[in-house]
Design a protein around this nucleic acid. Sequence first.
DNA 1: AGCCTGCCCTGCGAGC
DNA 2: TGCTCGCAGGGCAGGC
Length: 271
Amino acid sequence: MEGAVFASVEMRRSDLRFPLPTDFRRRLQGNEVKALRRRGKYLIADLSSGESLISHLGMTGRFTVRAAAGTSRPGDFYNAGSVDPAHDHVSFLMRRPSGQCRIDYNDPRRFGFMDIEPTGSLDKSRHFAGMGPEPMSPDFTPEALGAGLSGRSAPIKAALLDQGVVAGLGNIYVCEALFRSKISPRRQARNLSPAKTAQLCRTIREVLAEAIEAGGSTLRDFAAADGAPGIFQDRFQVYGRDLEPCPRCGSPIRRLVQSGRSTFYCAACQR
DNA sequence: AGCCTGCCCTGCGAGC
DNA sequence: TGCTCGCAGGGCAGGC
């Protein structure tokens, strides 16, 4: 998308998790994408107008890049995996001097959403104010993690899902990082020793780095923009493995529900 | 303030 | 085969 212009915007449904912003089409069309980036779980496209298109995939959202009708040249564009076109809610036609492509947003559950905010004040916008450090950045130190967890009586599992403590962690990677750190998901966040906090900081980075390398985790819906699924799900050590033996000690993996979400862990080696 | 529950929505697998 | 139930990668409002 970088360097390409929104030639047209098609909205089949505007009732995503939140309604699309007013004048959505007008504020995109004719704009060049100056930069494409990410913050936490949000995708950000900075526009030539000084505004940014923000999108969140929720759980089932998916952007797919396809050849625009009548413009495909072999090898120019990805040919994506199939999704139910009934859930293609928004489409962008992107144009650049060398050709054009279409980008379809598909989201069966419509838990995802898009918004447009001024680029200059994004950090203060409702989506990003209070968001914690990027886990792969130098800002994410054991001290920073410790500060985020201090004073919090919630279980460490719930605290790590809070995007204000650290940005971008979801249910899978929290479970996996806690397993690697041998920390019980039920432990109170404020009760982690500095050594354990440092270990957790390391394993969070480690899990994310491995998952990124593997192209992400595909349970059902996730795919890259070319339709390729991830393969990190094959390397889950606890997530989704209820009753299977712990890969470290052999005790059965257990499932419990914390703040409405499934947690998978080994009660024997996570303390 | 911090924590938890319920809810938004659709699809799918398990069990009957 | 066809139904109902439970569950799913996230985040928000509302109540305690």
